[in-house]
């Protein structure tokens, strides 16, 4: 029974027994758990003056306190929640847009429709991301989590569209796709059943990469003071640290730890991606 299941889902078996995937997933889950359960571990509020200022990490304040006496651990875990959420929504939107445009452009490869879609994509590639993000967010006076996600996603999708398009181009002349076409199946049906289902593993890896990229873009905007207008975010914690000269004052717990957690989480996802790559491409499996 179990062995039959694994035979059918061979890719999944290779994926879940890959050391890099296991390591990455464990680290990633730890960070996610910190974001979910972290707020339960702390008796403080993130805006509250929780103790003496300038305290190094201790049992009472896990990550020390800021120069104002706010608890860095509390701020970090609440900020982590917001940043991960924005990154996740933005990554999902960007992957969806990229896939839809990529599938359509690839399936109609070589036609005028394809050229127009690619022209549209190239325009977005050329317009400088960060500059556009800064200008857009500067003029939107109130920014919630959803607005932030849309802003980040708007500039994150083009490379996905390009990559998915070239994958679709190579799939669409396979015989089974031709067969579906001869049988008179609709375009949407062919895209869904024949092409998208065969690219599932690829799209999943694209999604992980998008998630990484959107989280970095999000934290960067937050750091520049262009994050959500209310609440706390990881980038905001780090911006405070720079503004209050935490680096010069040697407060490593404030200036380094919050960013370290995010970096570890993104690194873990990189490991998952590399492991999945090896699991899904038999060519790389022996490496």
């Amino acid at each position: 029974m179990t062995s039959e299941f694994w035979k059918e889902h061979e890719n999944l078996y290779y994926a879940l027994t890959n050391k890099k995937v296991i390591f990455g997933l464990v680290v990633f889950s730890l960070v996610i758990m910190l974001a979910i359960f972290g707020p339960l571990l702390t008796p403080y509020d993130y805006e509250e003056y929780a103790g003496d200022p300038y305290l190094a990490p201790s049992a009472k304040h896990f990550f020390g306190t800021t120069i104002m006496g706010k608890d860095v651990f509390t701020r970090t875990v609440y900020g982590l929640r917001s940043t991960i959420l924005v990154g996740f929504i933005a990554g999902t939107i960007a992957t969806l847009i990229g896939c839809i445009i990529g599938f359509l452009a690839g399936y109609f490869g070589g036609t005028l429709f394809d050229e127009l879609l690619m022209m549209f994509t190239n325009i977005f590639v050329v317009i400088p991301q960060l500059a556009l993000l800064i200008v857009i967010s500067a003029f939107l006076k109130a920014r919630g989590i959803v607005v932030m996600s849309v802003i980040v996603a708007a500039t994150a999708w083009p490379w996905t569209a390009r990559a998915v398009r070239s994958q679709t181009l190579s799939l669409k002349n396979q015989e089974y796709v031709n067969l579906s076409r001869i049988s008179g199946l609709g375009v949407m049906r062919i895209l869904k059943d024949d092409i998208a289902s065969n690219m599932f593993s690829y799209v999943f890896m694209v999604f992980i990469q998008q998630f990484n990229g959107t989280m970095l873009a999000t934290v960067q905007l937050e750091f520049l003071g262009l994050g959500p207008t209310r609440g706390i975010s990881l980038g905001l914690v780090m911006q405070d640290a720079v503004n209050w000269n935490a680096i010069q004052l040697g407060m490593w717990w404030w200036s380094i730890i919050p960013g370290l957690i995010l970096t570890i989480m993104i690194t873990a996802l990189y490991f998952v991606n590399t492991g999945l790559d090896a699991a899904f491409n038999p060519r790389l499996r022996e490496m």
Binding site: N212, L216, V219, Q220, F223, M238, A241, V242, I247, Q248, G250, W252, S255, I256, G259, L260, L262, T263, I264, I266, T267, Y270, F271, T274
Partner: peptide, 26 residues
């Protein structure tokens, strides 16, 4: 590889802070 993954996962400004802290302050 783990080092490269870590480097390319770090936000620019965070790594800048780390470099500033160790080489500049410490």
């Amino acid at each position: 590889m783990p080092i490269f993954y870590f480097l390319s996962s770090s936000p620019y400004f965070w790594l800048a802070g780390v470099v500033a802290f160790f080489l500049g302050v410490k």
